[in-house]
Design a protein around this nucleic acid. Structure first.
Lengths: 337, 337
DNA sequence: CTGTTAGCGCCTTCAT
DNA sequence: ATGAAGGCGCTAACAG
């Protein structure tokens, strides 16, 4: 590298132009991949860029062009791998259009939550995707097209909602267990809009079948530990439970731990059903039967909705639901006779 | 919200000044929390900001102040949760100093890898942390202080390296299994600098003990599936193996699957030892004995090294190693007599 | 293809 | 406490 470290300032477009013996405008044209640049000149500019270790300033570009090709994605916790599928789906759609996605988790901040979205908005992002239960401060984004991914309790005024149909997923879960012959079924739930819909759908279907619901975890979190605690309580009160539906895969793993702790086997004694079809459920070792929330498809549709909203900010809010599916694996089995 | 959506432009500091009936300078003072602003004026400005839905432009701020309070963190895959501890450690140190961390995974890009760091650098980040095996394009960051986290094969010229001592960790792993009485030990490794050092340390110690190493996975990846495949091959060739050390927790889970597939039990028939002490190992259900790579401490030291390098870019490259520790859990046991 | 001329939104003096 | 002026690095729109 010939990066002239003696000049302590980072090089600008002027430095490149001088070095390459061309005008600043030409450098700009090369940077934007303009076709009308002679190969020789282009090569000279590229060489100068290399030699100087030049990087265009995004700040200046943003300011001058009054737009960015980047969209922000806010999640609540990197450990909740649900967002990975969402992200891939979004990128699949946005990549070809030249957009980049910036991920920010709201737990990241010292002043938890406050600031995450502010920071994104201050970067002139072209659009915002909220993939968490929105905080108060995220509810007003008047100048930035916004789409909410996942079913939430409250969403910003003029934003679209794209989610998997958690209510249908809940019914699907109940149906799956019922068809396997289970009638003593427990459900581990938690706080948040998604869990509520899953619970509601599940309850609807079991009620139809005339089965009383054994519900645990209301108002608590949705971590593995929460799942464990809820499952322990459930099995303590109803030792004859033969099937458990957890609000997500992480909680399902907690349930597995509780079942193991009682010396019972899965699926021999108890069937376990998760939700999300996350990497966790797909694990060869865990091999958890799960409701697929189609996160990648949700990501794709989210990106499309965002593009539409960017094109026409005034368009009325849309609500799109993707149908979930069951993925049978090793943690569920027909009720033993 | 009184956000006047009729003006389609996003409001600027001028709009706020006009609305609040003050000068643009005063608004700037309020934004930077200057003390010399009368409460009444300050309130007026704050109100105007609220009413207009104003957000300062980071682009303009960056350009004008010629510095940002943000540092970039490049990882290779969001699913490798190692980075979460690193991130927390960094934030613990950087948060109080007013810095924000922007995470970017290099798999994210359509043109894999190329561009991730470019994008970060173009944002005028104050510093860069590379937490992956660096791509060619990441090796030259002449204008941005850089620190590498984790032991890697090659690192940029003038950058520091902070990592847990993988070599010592490897020895520790061997020691742990030897002390439990195991002598028929297999090791599942993979590509990359970290795995190489773990392997080397492990080998050193087992060789000392006069034990031949049963090594699998050389040149392959380090995913759960890779761990599974390597373990299957290992057990196929050496059915009498009583202990397995995996290069990371994810591979350890793969080993658990292979062991289960053979109808053997853990730790009854075979002990399994992972590395990283990731959320996976900590799982109540998986409960994997693991070498703690002290990722949070590495993050803390990484942040400190970065701050030093920002203060004095010319300082000679440092190399700091953190001592790993063993965390005993349910997948290891003394060799059955 | 080149040079010139304007800003983009904000920070920073320096006066007032 | 306020106004004016200059500049950050780049794009855009022209007139060469």
């Amino acid at each position: 590298m010939t990066a002239d470290a003696s000049r302590s300032r980072r090089p600008t477009i002027y430095d490149v132009a001088t070095r390459a013996g061309v005008s600043k405008s030409l450098v700009s044209l090369v940077l934007t991949n303009s076709a009308s640049v002679r190969p020789a000149k282009r090569a000279a500019v590229l060489a100068a860029i290399q030699e100087l270790g030049y990087r265009p300033s995004r700040a200046a570009t943003t300011l001058a062009s009054r737009e960015t090709k980047s969209i922000g994605l806010v999640i609540d916790d990197y450990r909740n791998l649900w967002f990975v599928g969402l992200l891939r789906g979004m990128q699949q759609e946005l990549g070809p259009l030249g957009y980049q996605v910036t991920v920010a988790d709201s737990a990241e901040e010292v002043v938890a939550g406050e600031g995450t979205v502010e920071r994104l908005l201050s970067m002139h992002i072209a659009g915002l995707v909220i993939a968490m239960e929105p905080r108060e401060s995220m509810l007003h984004t008047p100048w930035t097209p916004t789409v909410v991914a996942g079913w939430r309790d409250k969403i910003p005024e003029a934003s679209d909602l794209i989610a998997n149909d958690d209510e249908a997923g809940g019914r699907l879960a109940a149906n799956t267990l019922l068809e396997l012959g289970h009638t003593k079924i427990g459900h581990l739930t938690g706080s948040g809009g998604a869990a509520a819909h899953r619970r509601s759908g599940f309850h609807t279907r079991t009620a139809e079948a005339g089965i009383p619901l054994r519900l645990w975890g209301m108002g608590h979190g949705t971590t593995e530990e929460d799942g464990y605690q809820a499952a322990v309580a459930l099995l303590e009160h109803f030792p004859d439970t033969t099937a458990i539906f957890a609000a997500n895969d992480t909680m399902a793993v907690g349930a597995l731990a509780a079942i193991k702790a009682r010396g019972l086997s899965v699926p021999g004694d108890i069937s376990v059903l998760g939700y999300d079809n996350s990497p966790l459920a797909k694990s060869r070792y865990l091999d958890i039967t799960s409701i697929d929330d189609k996160s990648e498809e949700v990501g794709l549709l989210t990106a499309q909705a965002l593009m539409s909203r960017i094109a026409d900010p005034g368009r009325p809010p849309q609500r799109t639901l993707v149908q979930p599916a069951i993925v049978s694996r090793g943690t569920t089995a027909p009720l033993a006779p």
